[in-house]
């Protein structure tokens, strides 16, 4: 069906477009319509939010399910029928507890990882967790002068580390010794003495 001005995008088409799975011909019609229809743009924004949330939630639940299965399998492997029921139950609980604790313990910190951060739009990139970072940050266009203040914050905005560094042409380099636990982080370039960031980069450690 050819796009016409009076009509609106279907929910299915918007959802497939948000998922990046809409075919070429349909994409053309949809994008032409989006150029001139505010209601459909708003619907696409809502669809984006829903799709992103569902992806993240499904991934999280799948990971939880795998973790539970492993603990349950360990418990079953160590069950001994000749023991009294209360003893077998207690043993299973202990095994599950130990397995859960071991699964949650962070791996020991590894070698530093060098990461180059560019000021370009794109999907959030990931780095391996539990490693200190050596960062090269894209500082093009920032006019930093002789010094820059680099701040590493967690997803809640709490400062984890900070450093004053000298810019190197269009880059600033910073070494953060703290190994990152899995999660989302942000690296900010600021002027010394100024809390407002000039540029911010997103990182995901996993």
């Amino acid at each position: 069906m050819e796009a016409t001005f009076e009509d609106h995008c279907t929910d299915d088409a918007l959802e497939l477009y948000a998922l990046g799975r809409l075919g070429g011909k349909h994409t053309e019609a949809l994008e032409e319509h989006l150029l001139i229809c505010e209601p459909c743009r708003e619907r696409l924004d809502e669809t984006d939010i829903f799709v992103r949330a569902m992806k993240g939630a499904a991934a999280r639940l799948r990971l939880e399910q795998k973790t539970e299965s492993f603990a349950a399998r360990v418990a079953r492997a160590f069950q001994v029928p000749a023991f009294p029921v209360w003893a077998a139950s207690a043993a299973c609980l202990c095994i599950i507890a130990v397995s859960a604790v071991r699964l949650q313990q962070p791996a020991p910190a590894g070698a530093s990882i060098a990461v180059s951060l560019h000021a370009e739009r794109g999907a959030s990139q990931t780095v391996a967790a539990h490693h200190p970072l050596v960062l090269s940050l894209d500082a093009r266009g920032l006019s930093l002068g002789k010094s820059a203040h680099i701040v590493l914050v967690n997803a809640g905005g709490t400062t984890l580390e900070q450093a004053d560094v000298a810019p190197d042409n269009d880059q600033v380099h910073a070494r953060f010794s703290r190994p990152l636990d899995p999660g989302d982080y942000f690296v900010r370039i600021c002027r010394p003495g100024d809390a407002d960031p000039l540029r911010e980069f997103a990182l995901r450690a996993q």
Binding site: G56, A57, R121, Q125, A155, F186, R199, E200, A202
Partner: peptide, 28 residues
């Protein structure tokens, strides 16, 4: 740098990341 992986600016500030997490929790 050697062994470096390019990490583009994802454009998500802490507030947007927090909102993302909340929405994900709703989906969970």
């Amino acid at each position: 740098l050697d062994t470096s992986a390019p990490v583009p600016d994802g454009g998500m500030n802490p507030e947007a990341a927090a909102m993302n997490r909340q929405q994900e929790q709703l989906a969970v």
